[in-house]
């Protein structure tokens, strides 16, 4: 099953109504906002930190802050961008407090000169049955966790949660070109990992 975050866009109007009711402390509207975004925030936390306990903490803290600060939401961005920013900030501070566990190398830009001078082999046709096994998923998760957080966060928001470059930049408070560079490096890093998997496991 694919994550489908595109739906969010069309729910914008409904979201605005809910938010204005929630600002009046309408319990029903508040619950509906929680229901609307809890799954996504949990998933985001899980991908950011790689563990369920932290994901649960992020989920609870995010919505506690939402209850407390919803009146400060001015509608300059969409509500979910605002909510994502809260969740990402909590997630990143959690990661930083557990520094040793994570990798802090920087990733080089891709070397296009090198790409042109090498003999590149095509990957055989994809068989999703093979890549959907538990074993393979674990390898993909491990590769994602190896990515330093500044790249991983962008990859999660852009490619897994399908947020736009602009939304991602707003959430992370970086420029669009920075978002693009980080995403390109993250994708290339994961591609390299996958390349190794193709060689060692012959799964694709």
């Amino acid at each position: 099953m694919l994550l489908n975050y595109v739906v969010l866009e069309s729910n914008n109007k409904k979201e605005q109504e809910l938010v204005s009711k929630a600002k009046q402390r309408d319990k029903n509207a508040l619950s509906q906002l929680v229901s609307l975004y809890s799954k996504r925030i949990y998933h985001l936390g899980l991908r950011l930190t790689g563990n369920e306990q932290d994901a649960e903490d992020i989920l609870q803290e995010t919505f506690l802050i939402m209850l407390k600060k919803i009146n400060q939401f001015r509608g300059k961005s969409t509500f979910y961008t605002w909510l994502y920013r809260i969740a990402v900030n909590i997630g990143l501070s959690k990661i930083q407090s557990k520094k040793m566990k994570y990798h802090h190398f920087s990733i080089d830009d891709l070397d296009i000169e090198k790409i042109h001078s090498e003999h590149i082999h095509e990957w055989p046709k994809l068989d999703f049955k093979n890549v959907s096994t538990k074993h393979f998923k674990k390898k993909l998760d491990d590769a994602l966790e190896e990515l330093p957080e500044i790249y991983r966060t962008v990859f999660i928001l852009r490619d897994l949660h399908e947020l736009s470059t602009e939304e991602t930049s707003k959430i992370l408070q970086i420029t669009s070109s920075n978002t693009k560079i980080r995403l390109m490096r993250a994708r290339n890093f994961l591609k390299e990992k996958l390349e190794n998997l193709v060689k060692t496991e012959g799964l694709i």
Partner: peptide, 22 residues
């Protein structure tokens, strides 16, 4: 070379999306 390279990047993203169950 570039064609294959771009294709591999696309496939990488595609695979991650596919296996990233909600």
């Amino acid at each position: 070379n570039c064609e294959i390279f771009v294709d591999k990047i696309k496939k990488t993203v595609e695979i991650y999306k596919k296996v990233d169950e909600c």
